[in-house]
Simulated assay, not measured.
Amino acid sequence: MEEIFQLLFTELQRATRATAENCREVAERISNEVARICNESKRIQASGDVDTWANSLARHRLQQCLHYYQLGSHQGRVDLHSTLSAIIYRYITPLGSPQNYQARLGLIEDFLQGFYAEALNAFRREAQLDARYRPQSLLDLAEYMAFTERYGKRRIPLPGNRSQQLIILRAQTFSSSQPPETSVDMEQAAEGSSADADSNWSDGAMQQVREIMVANEPEPLEASLRDTVIKELMAYLEQHQQNDCADYFALRLQDLSTNEIEEILNITPRERDYLQQRFKYHLIRFALSHRWELVHQWLEADLEKNLGLTPQQWQNFQTKISAEQLKLLQLKQQSVSNVEIARALNCTVNQVEKRWFKLLEQAWEIRNRSLSGSGASKDE
């Protein structure tokens, strides 16, 4: 283990700006953890190659720690929060409204606050640290975040030769214990001031970790156009009973790979492809019909900006559409209501909406072809 300690100590000094003493402390804790695992694991002891196992475990922990260190305190927290949220997403279900996206996010936030507290206590216990220990440096925080990820992913043996990740078991217990009348007060959760949370978050050490790990108060939805689009699209999908599309969209927002999405939703690649196509269909309906003004404003492609087309594209676009379509476009630019447009064009309001959808679709295709060529698309 002395060789492993020297390896860890040297790499931490080389890859971080932490003090030598800080690097020494972290290297000692990691090497002690590796030694404990190797001594307690019957499989490792029976392998006849304990040194190789120890080296592999140490390097894995080192890379995890450096990963969070390089991300920094803020982005590291975001990365850990996203990783754990993706694991438990389908296991946190609000009673009474299992498909309510906002309620589910609220419960996930509430659950993870308690889990971060549990992980810190486990870290103190397993590293034989003082009960008042708290991360002081960026390297300490990175070590703690790496431990929290591993702690959540630990496999817990279950009857019937089965096992499950610890954080999933915790999430299932948490979700089943929520009474139907429970509502999550996000302001209270962010402050850690609920009656149950006081014992976990009241002391100074937990307060500091909470501030670093979970006190990232989001901007009000109204202050962020992107968040408003997301909220409106989620509501649209739920209104049209496309709850699986809403789940897919929520996971896409976390920038997960297709394999991760398939695993979380428990679907095959073919089912995921079908779901993706169905989501795209509803996304287009939402973007070009249901809330086209909002979406185009977010994309900086509203009527004031010629639907996102360049001056030349805008000129060509107007020359290629019919006289009736051009009149419709001009009336829209004048903010004329659909009822008045219907009178002017001698058609129904429904026909106006369909014709406008077609016009937006044509402009969308031109714009997307241009963006695809430049490699910069914001549409999905």
Score class of each variant (00 low, 15 high):
Trp201Tyr: 15
Ala54Gly: 03
Asp379Arg: 08
Ala131Tyr: 05
Phe286Val: 03
Pro157Met: 11
Gly152Thr: 07
Pro159Gln: 00
Glu126Pro: 05
Leu283Arg: 04
Ala15Ser: 05
Lys153Trp: 13
Thr173Lys: 01
Leu141Asn: 09
Lys153Glu: 14
Ala131Glu: 04
Met206Phe: 08
Leu71Ala: 11
Ala86Tyr: 01
Gln165Cys: 00
Pro159Thr: 00
Pro220Met: 04
Val336Ile: 10
Phe249Gly: 02
Pro159Cys: 00
Ile267Thr: 06
Lys354Val: 13
Met1Asn: 14
Tyr236Glu: 09
Arg134Tyr: 15
Leu80Arg: 04
Pro218Lys: 07
Asn39Ala: 14
Ser289Thr: 15
Gly96Phe: 06
Glu126Thr: 11
Gln13Asp: 06
Leu57Glu: 14
Ile212Ala: 08
Glu21Pro: 02
Gln242His: 04
Met206Gly: 01
Arg367Glu: 09
Val209Trp: 04
Asp51Met: 06
Ser137Arg: 05
His81Ile: 12
Ala376Met: 11
Arg125Tyr: 15
Pro179Thr: 03
Asn316Tyr: 14
Leu107Gly: 10
Asn243Asp: 08
Ile37Phe: 10
Glu118His: 11
Ser199Met: 11
Asn200His: 15
Ile168Phe: 03
Ser194Met: 06
Met213Leu: 06
His240Trp: 08
Glu25Pro: 04
Ala323Ser: 13
Ser47Ile: 09
Ala15Pro: 02
Asn266Thr: 14
Leu251Gln: 06
Tyr144Gln: 07
Ser377His: 03
Pro94Val: 08
Glu109Ser: 13
Leu12Lys: 01
Trp292Pro: 13
Cys347Leu: 15
Glu361Asp: 03
Leu233Gly: 02
His290Gln: 04
Leu307His: 03
Gln318Arg: 12
Val50Asn: 06
Gln208Pro: 12
Gln188Cys: 07
Glu365Arg: 02
Asn338Arg: 03
Ala223Arg: 05
Cys38Val: 10
Ala171Tyr: 04
Ala18Leu: 14
Trp314Lys: 08
Phe357Tyr: 10
Gln297Phe: 07
Lys305Cys: 08
Ile321Lys: 04
Val336Asn: 02
Glu187Val: 14
Ala127Pro: 12
His282Asp: 09
Pro180His: 14
Gly76Ser: 10
Val229Cys: 11
Asn346Arg: 12
Glu118Trp: 13
Tyr101Pro: 15
Asn200Asp: 15
Glu21Ala: 01
His240Gly: 04
Gln164Phe: 03
Cys38His: 10
Val295Met: 02
Ala20Asp: 11
Ser82Ile: 11
Asp302Ser: 00
Glu11His: 00
Gly308Ala: 10
Ala363Ile: 04
Phe286Asn: 07
Phe5His: 03
